[in-house]
Amino acid sequence: MKALMEERLFEPFIDATDGVLCLPSGSDAAEIEREAALHGLRFPLVVDESARLCDQVAASPFAPASSRFGPYCDNITGMNWELPDGRRVRVGERVVKSTTGYDLLRFLLGTTGRYGGPVDYVLRLRPACDVVQTFFLRGDLSPLRMAAAEILQTSWIHWFDSMDFLAAQGCGPLLRIAVNCPPGEGDAYMDFLSKMADKHRLSLDHSPGLPLDGCPDLVIKTSPALVLDTALRLAEHPGTKCVALCCCGVVHLFLADPGPEAILLLARPLEKELYAIGGDWSSRHVRTNAPASPEADWILTLRKEWGLP
């Protein structure tokens, strides 16, 4: 087999039929929106209005809308990637479905800077609907938890952009549900959520727009069964706001003081139980632990084979 003589890097493009958009990884929400909206499409995994998309991706593998559309790595189908020595390669495809070769795309997306970084992304876009609304269920903790657990077991969960549980000191817990739907369906969502509110004796209100929490300081990956407990425990620390992405089993933490010590203080005690179930933590402010054996050897081989120092 002979390799191509040169790399097939992606050029910027938008394909409205396939719903894919290629643009620089440093683009922000407005730039993405401008391209996508022209064709009635959107990129739903935006968490911050002003941050570059690559920084959002580096901050957490998940956004609230990952509940409906999956993590970033399922919504970025390809990349132009720059290795630390400046070589640029294409990883992934401009089509969504691919089993061609090893999945370097998803592997690299989780590596935050250790093997270079993205130059351009090919984003998977989705139909944008007219009704954009966020619902809030408020009340006591126990019925809120029951409502969350119940909704999670219905096929409605496929149709909410997100269902997040918010906990922070000084304000009551609440369940936040974001919806993006055609005009004719808004009342169906309202009906369902009103019934849920009545059944669990919760109050229901809503406001236009989708939630934008910003880039989280610390991200905990656990299972949906444990995510509320984890969020509640972490929210006991002063100056900590927790957004638990119920369906993804992810807690996003926003800290008043996001220094490395503060983050390690929160994350370290959780490590043992997280690792036992294949969970993890990550933070854009802290370098993760150095790899142990045999992983250190694997990484050494990888760097050598890739020609990296």
Binding site: M1, K2, A3, L4, M5, E6, E7, R8, L83, R87, R88, V89, R90, V91, E93, V95, K97, S98, T99, T100, G101, Y102, L104, T301, L302, E305, W306, G307
Partner: peptide
Amino acid sequence: TLSGEHGIGNDKSEYMGMVFGPDSLRLQLA
């Protein structure tokens, strides 16, 4: 791309050179 869900196996492996440039191929074979 060559395959969406069946995999490459030994049926389509000869075509991989159509997809990967020299650097990408090196990354893959690593």
